[in-house]
């Protein structure tokens, strides 16, 4: 065997190979990370959709309940119940009313003015304090 026919050997350049392997590894890792993020994104999207649906459902239920309460407490409904006898209006005797402001003297019509509507401002700020007597 002469030198020319000697089988040539290719040395493995570990450094280069290692560099490539590391590069490929990182590219692969980045790809996997990308896929992971994409999956996460979809999972979060599904969660968001579920939460949105839940919120919508609760809102709708809330609206339905509010409408139900409005219907049950509407003036018409209460009047119907009064007529049917389910509820009744009980007059509150004047002696059972605790007044923060004193009652106005009785007018000729016998109607006592309520303190909540005080057109003349007689019980407003600066009004003289008066003893309550009956």
């Amino acid at each position: 065997m002469n030198g020319n026919r000697r089988r040539t050997t290719n040395s493995i350049e570990v450094n280069v190979l290692a560099r490539w392997l590391v590069a490929v590894f990182f590219v692969g890792l980045a790809g996997l990370f990308f896929v992971y993020l994409k999956n996460q994104q979809h999972a979060v999207g599904d969660q968001a959709r579920a939460v949105e649906a839940a919120i919508r459902e609760i809102e709708a239920k809330n609206e339905a309940l509010k409408a139900h309460i409005t219907a049950m407490t509407s003036r018409g409904a209460l009047q119907r119940r009064i007529e049917e006898g389910y509820i009744r209006l009980e007059p509150i005797p004047d002696t059972a009313i605790a007044r923060i402001a004193p009652a106005l003297p009785s007018e000729p019509d016998g109607v006592l003015r309520t303190a909540s509507r005080d057109p003349d401002g007689r019980f407003g700020v600066g009004a003289p304090l008066r003893a309550i007597s009956r």
Partner: peptide
């Protein structure tokens, strides 16, 4: 009654 209008005392007495 609902609006709690103050009655007109003197004037009304004559009319009523």
């Amino acid at each position: 009654r609902y609006l709690d209008l103050p009655p007109e005392s003197a004037l009304v007495m004559a009319q009523s």
